[in-house]
Structures are given as structure tokens and as C-alpha cells.
Amino acid sequence: MSLITPDIGLIFWMVVIFGVVFFILAKFGFPVITSSVEKRSNHIRDSLAAAEQARLSVEEAALKRQQMLEETRTEQGRILREASRERDAIIAEGQQKARDEASEILRSARAEIASEKEEAEREIRAQVSALSLAVAEKVMRKELESDQEQLSLLERYSEEASEAQMS
């Protein structure tokens, strides 16, 4: 039967046609397509890898930021604590100083007061002695109103003075 006996003419044409088709498609057709597709799939693979890389680095950055934030927070706490300690120290020192100052002022004030008091006492004493002298003068004046008395007193004084000279 002719169905299963290959015909030479058809074989000839098939070789020619398939050969030409193969030549054209293998030269201008499929390599262009497959290389383009491969280029794209490589590009996609690289992009995916880059995206993964980027995701990782973002994650890393976020982690780092978190760490830094925590560090900052502890640092902040530390600084705050230190500052409050410092503040307390300064306040304490200030109070100490103020107390010292106050006691100094008090002491000097007491000394002043004491010296003022002495001065006043001295003045009072001087006044008192002056007053008593004035009083004595007044008293003497009253006793020596008579000439007699004045003379006897003179006499006594001169005696006393000559006795003192002779001795």
C-alpha cells in the first residue's frame, strides 16, 4: 500500500523545505527569542536577588536603628541620672556654701555687735565719768563758795605740795 511506502519526491521536497525552515529559524528566529527570554529571566533573577539583598539590608538597618534607639535611650537615662546627681550635688554644695556663708555672716555680725557694745560701754563710761566730774565740780563749787574755805583748801594743797617737795 502506498501509505507506508515513502515517496522519493516528497522526501526530496521535505528535506529541502525542512532544511530551509531549519536554517532560517535557527539563524534568525529562535536564538534571538531564546536569548532575549534568557536575558530577561536572568534580569528577573538578579532583580529578585537584589530585592532580597535590599530587604535584608533594610531589615539590618531597622535592627541597627532599633539598637541605636535603645542605646540612645539607655544613654539618655544615664545622662539624666548623672544630671540629676550633679544637680543634687550642686544644690547640696550650694546649700553648704550658703550655710557656711550664713554662719560666717552671723559670726562677723556677732563680733561687730560685741565691739559696738564695748564701744558703747566705753562711751557710756566716759559719759558717766564726765557727768560725775561735772557733778563733782558742781558739788565742789558749792562747798568752796566762802573765801575761808577756799583759803583753807589752798593752804592744805600748798602744804601737801610742799610736803611732797620736801620728801
Partner: peptide, 8 residues
């Protein structure tokens, strides 16, 4: 056709 498949 067997001639075609033969060539292939």
C-alpha cells in the same frame, strides 16, 4: 505521511 515523518 510517512515520507515527511521519515525526514523528520
Amino acid at each position: 505521511n510517512i515520507a515527511v515523518t521519515l525526514v523528520l
